[in-house]
Nucleic acid binder design. Structure first.
Lengths: 141, 141
DNA sequence: AGAATATATGTAGAGTTGTTCAGACGTTAA
DNA sequence: TTAACGTCTGAACAACTCTACATATATTCT
């Protein structure tokens, strides 16, 4: 099965002992599987994206793009309750997306990961909104 | 009235009289709120990230980084059932993350959005894995 | 000391999500 | 035509997520 063997499956496929699924381009499949990141990396990646999949957390992180903020100000900025903000920040603290600086009874949160900042910027340009302080020109026409 | 008769902004900071939550830095809060993207944009952003928050879908999209693939090969590559792949692709088709080319009874899917490709690349570097043959400029010493 | 404050956390319930199973649809081969 | 095939879809169910409420912890003020 070398070269451009496309849909060479006119005869029953299961004959091949342990192949449980149909294959059309076995070479591609094997090549891509070889390049596929480890299970744990894919999982970590999905977790990071999952943290960015909630509008409330997105607003929190967008707010933090400008610099650190305390919990109550984050609540006021995002429209979430302080409890919801605290729960959200706990999730974000786990994988070290945000970090906390404590001053007395206040807790000031800030972004701890430049990759997440880039993900947010990229995503914001994707949905048509200019990034936070990077692309700020085009508005109306 | 469902509760919340407790502390409401008693600190004489600089909060306006009509503000329902405590504020520490009202100027920052107002500035960030002014810069906050529209509700719909934040929602769209969360939806996109949500599509990337499942390991199965991430594997599908990583496989598609190399070019188009049919459903059965995607199943073989990702380890998902063909039904699960089809369901996943349906979700990804909606916001036009992937596109489909039909040839007979086969359906070949490919990435339809360069932003998503960039998000994946960025995310993959984040979790420590080099991108799909694209980002590999790590210099050690 | 006690009271007020700022944040953190436990829990329960409604809502959402991903998978599997069964079957439908359109296409190709016999 | 019938049969096999690749893909798509709906329903059901477990697993997960988000929010609100109550409470806990730690800090500051009087």
């Amino acid at each position: 099965m070398t070269g451009t063997a496309r849909a060479l499956r006119t005869t029953p496929r299961r004959a091949g002992a342990d192949c449980a699924v149909r294959l059309v381009d076995a070479d591609r499949v094997e090549a891509v599987r070889a390049r596929m990141p480890a299970e744990s990396d894919v999982g970590d990646l999905a977790v990071i994206f999952g943290l960015l999949s909630d509008p409330g957390r997105v607003r929190i992180l967008i707010a933090l793009l400008d610099g650190e903020m305390c919990v109550c100000d984050l609540a006021a900025t995002t429209g979430l309750s302080e409890s919801a903000v605290s729960h959200a920040l706990r999730l974000l603290r786990g994988p070290r997306v945000v970090q906390v600086r404590r001053a007395g009874r206040m807790a000031y949160y800030s972004l701890a990961d430049s990759h997440v900042r880039m993900l947010l910027d990229l995503g914001l340009t994707h949905v048509g909104h200019a990034g936070q302080g990077r692309l700020q020109a085009v508005s109306n026409s």
